[in-house]
Nucleic acid binder design. Structure first.
Lengths: 346, 346
DNA sequence: CTGAAAGCGCTAACAA
DNA sequence: TTGTTAGCGCTTTCAG
């Protein structure tokens, strides 16, 4: 008996004087089994420290209750919250989550293929997109994928993302309403789809207004320090000074703000408006008070999880793409609307 | 052939004209197999989109290459980094990570038990401790646990934590060297072992210096806003105003700092010193410049992962507890040392 | 180097 | 309600 081996249902069955199948039933909710048998089995199981082997169950049921979570953006300001909410929501539905980090599309595919080997029932991909090839493999294996923070329409996979065009329109019109005229656009990753779409929307809205224009566009600026440095560069050239800066990250925006206040003595929001993206906690701090765009992450996570579970439980449902609207948060780095006659407060 | 079933090694074997065992060998690094057979098998596998079923392999090998990661503190300022580093380090060694959230010891045990059912090869517990009962179950099952950010000596499990007493001593002596005399201690969770140990160390160091004393101790203060409010309360009572505040979270410390500067007009660091804990990025921001304690998270993660893997691969190694030293980061919220005759700069 | 066969621990008909 | 039996897809002797 002292074998260094975990007890299995066989052992429990022997001790309880029942068949192995009955033990299995005792651990299957809703299985038909007598109270007497269950009692005996529970006692035996407790004595042996028996825990059902879910790996074996998975093999037999051809369902692992494992969900792969591919995380491609750890610097996202809400990364921890997202992870927490995703895992908790999935746990709620009795799934376990395998997380994996991936950067670059090559790696993304590798990770996804590994997930398949682990027989995951479904996958959530955060901030990345699989190649068409691996998408096809998933389709063939009937394993649903949900893209979070990325649009997957073209891949025929479900996705939950934010309406980047909407963000762009919103920013542009808020700035317009506040009488800013010379915009500078600053972003970190020029390849990010959301940045591209948002930029496009801003540009097109601006184009409709002759007195407004885009002064400059700069990519590759990421983080507080980088923002602080960038504003100094920008300010060096008086002829191309903007009167509003739109920044695709709150952190960078806060760096710009700090540069304005501490090094350059630029008056915000009178002389210069700053708009961030993400609404990180620091943006709300009294001494920062950054106007920014808030993204409804919590709802997006719920939707992604629900979409995935639906897809797992009913393989016949078709992929769907959901877009969420962002919200402009007016704080201290943009002027209060000066033209009350329109009644608009956006 | 159009069955909605994933191809298995049997299918591949049939197509390649070899036995199923040979297919298994083809996917086992270092197995003895001819090039010819391997070629044929690879071709067949590619055609069928075959991926080895790791669940089945696990059952057979009695090793899942799954590691459970129990995460109990998502508000930790480095939560995302920690998760990323842990999963990447484990991936490096070919393990997959199942993450689970847990709050409260009841839940902790439940999650750990679930992990056992999933046949994890080992578990990392971040910021929580299992009960003795579940520890025993793990010991019996020969599944190693490593506690991260928590000392596990008493439980006879491995652990990697920070030397809280060392932190306390360090803070107390830095403050002493800077001639602060009236300390206030502020923390979020009064039950946190690290807070308790650190506080104890501060108190005992202070006790050795007659001209220094603890003015007040306050728990339950957590976060930027709470810090901002708390400093107002503190300042209301002139007779118990401290000249130094030690805060077990950078965020709270930054709130206090903001309160001092914006609402109260308190001069930091002349009139009041503020020391945080954690060295979050915002603490280094020029406009904040918070003196704080830096914890070597990266090394701790590596150590935890290595300890776990060692424990998995050689079950005979005994649990060990590692303690890491924190580092005092002198920035703008504590005075520059005024007494150069000693030559000490810590 | 390769194949046959016996598991790994569980679930799921099918009988009883 | 219970037991018997046949898998789930893989690894691992053991012969050949």
């Amino acid at each position: 008996m002292n074998i260094a081996r975990r007890a299995n249902s066989q052992d429990v069955a022997a001790l309880a004087g029942v068949s192995q199948a009955t033990v299995s039933r005792a651990f299957t909710p809703g299985a038909s089994i007598s109270d007497r048998a269950r009692k005996k089995i529970e006692a035996a199981a407790a004595k042996l420290g028996y825990q059902p082997n879910i790996i074996a169950r998975s093999l037999s049921k051809r369902r692992s209750r494992l969900v792969g979570l591919l995380f491609a953006n750890w610097t996202h300001p809400k990364a921890a919250d997202l992870l927490k909410n995703i895992t908790e929501a999935l746990t709620e539905h009795d799934y376990k989550v395998i997380v994996q980090s991936a950067t670059g599309s090559r790696l993304t595919d590798e990770v996804l293929r590994e997930f398949l080997r682990y027989q995951v029932d479904g996958v959530i991909v955060f901030s990345a997109a699989p190649t068409a090839e691996i998408s096809a493999e998933y389709a063939r294996a009937q394993v649903p994928i949900v893209l979070l923070n990325q649009n997957g329409q073209s891949l025929n996979t479900s996705s939950v993302s934010v309406d980047a065009t909407g963000i762009g329109n919103q920013i542009a019109s808020s700035l317009l309403a506040r009488s800013y005229k010379r915009l500078a656009l600053i972003s970190a990753n020029p390849k990010s789809q959301i940045v591209i779409d948002m930029t496009k929307a801003i540009v097109s809205t601006v184009a409709e207004h002759p007195h407004m224009r885009i002064i400059s566009q700069q990519t590759g600026i990421d983080g507080y320090e980088a923002g602080m440095r960038e504003i100094e560069n920008i300010w060096k050239q008086p002829e191309t000074r903007p009167d509003a800066i739109v920044c695709t990250s709150d952190n960078t925006a806060l760096g710009i703000l700090a540069g304005c206040r501490q090094n350059l003595g630029i008056k915000v929001p009178e002389e210069l408006a700053i708009v961030g993206l993400g609404d990180i906690p620091a943006s709300a701090w009294q001494d920062q008070s950054l106007s920014t765009i808030k993204i409804p992450h919590d709802e997006m996570v719920s939707k992604a999880v629900m979409t995935l579970i639906t897809g797992i439980e009913d393989p016949s449902v078709q992929p769907e793409s959901y877009r969420y609207q962002a919200e402009f948060i007016q704080r201290g780095t943009t002027r209060i609307i000066s033209n009350p006659k329109t009644g608009e407060t956006q």
